[in-house]
Design a protein around this nucleic acid. Structure first.
Lengths: 195, 195
DNA sequence: AACTGACCAAAAAACTTTTTTGGTCAAATA
DNA sequence: TATTTGACCAAAAAAGTTTTTTGGTCAGTT
């Protein structure tokens, strides 16, 4: 079996178990058994359990990044893009259970080993939102003096509501409200003239 | 010693210990010793440790409520009131450590016994914000179609950011940004004419 | 009415034993 | 040479046990 195939099988199986049981409750042995291999082979492809989890998380977030990139790159106007971005981001992340685990860990043990992947995602989002807002300003839709500040506040809000939504399972309860939330964020950035 | 005096002494001492060590690590005996009384006397005034903590939390939140009421009742225009309300709310709650403990508990054990006090505070805030927004609409400052929805979103945001701010100790880091956040919320509700 | 101090059951903490698990590696396979 | 294996080990987690602490009670005192 080719190296890449086995590696993929491992990540696939790991994704299954990590998603269902979480990092701690998943054992390397059960991942190996699931693909009918000896446990040792996992260590041929991955340095440690932490690195394997890292890879799973990375792929989970890569999927989100790919979808969000599509939105940012589309040819709609920046208002529509921003609204779609916010709603899609929340929708996609709501199913990213390994990502949820890492934010939950912020209150407990801390998963230091996922810092790089999470930082990468944070940087990605910063770039995307900056891009959208610069575009919006150019097009005259958005009334933003300090783009950096507005990007940071928007990201802070988006990150903050993840906790009630994903960790306290209020996503279903708030799903409709989220549209209003997005509208509110748009509203706060939109170019208008004071009455 | 009069009944009310002793009761106050107990609550005062309890506040001290609960604030420093939290609900679980504080013992009824040390509270009693601190006021040079036998432990049994605590149970003359309070049904249980939980009820005593409840009283401490209640007073903590009553202080916040009192300050916020002053703001809501002031004679400034509704935009200024709303901005002050948001900033003061966050500032005051940032020092309410027993309140922090109860939101932290949402991720762990759950302190069911504080539900009433917290619900009461939530209702209070709902009323205050509704009042401010109704006033703002009447005065023509705010452009709000559905007040109920806007109140709920604003509260959801305020509640959400408590977690990074208070539990992950990012209050100092974000303190300056909060002003911008308040401005952003105001902006989203303010009456303007689309360009 | 307000308070005490001895008392108890239950829970938490501390300690011990047992089991599981992450990780290694020499040898086997391909 | 590139993969894979299975036995192996130290360390950690889990399970089990003992000891200590603590919330709560109550008969009796002030």
């Amino acid at each position: 079996m080719s190296e890449i195939e086995t590696r993929n099988l491992i990540v696939e199986a790991a994704t299954k178990f990590f998603s269902r049981y979480g990092f701690r409750k998943t054992t390397m042995d059960e991942i190996a058994r699931h693909i009918h291999k000896a446990k040792g082979v996992l260590y041929y492809y991955f340095k440690s359990k932490e690195e394997l989890f890292n890879e799973v998380l990375k792929q989970e977030l890569n999927h989100v990044k790919a979808e969000l990139s599509k939105i940012t790159g589309s040819h709609e106007d920046s208002l529509a893009i921003l609204k779609k971005y916010i709603l899609t981001r929340l929708k996609l992340l709501s199913t990213a259970v390994n990502y949820h685990e890492t934010i939950k860990a912020d209150f407990f043990e801390k998963y230091d080993f996922v810092k790089d992947v999470r930082d990468d995602f944070a940087r990605f989002e910063h770039i995307q939102l900056t891009h959208i807002m610069v575009k919006g300003k150019k097009e005259g839709y958005l009334d933003i003096r300090n783009i950096e500040t507005n990007v940071n506040i928007t990201l802070m809000l988006l990150n903050s509501i993840e906790i009630p939504l994903f960790l306290q399972n209020k996503f279903a309860e708030f799903e409709d409200t989220l549209k209003e939330l997005a509208t509110m964020v748009l509203n706060s950035l939109q170019k208008k003239r004071n009455v």
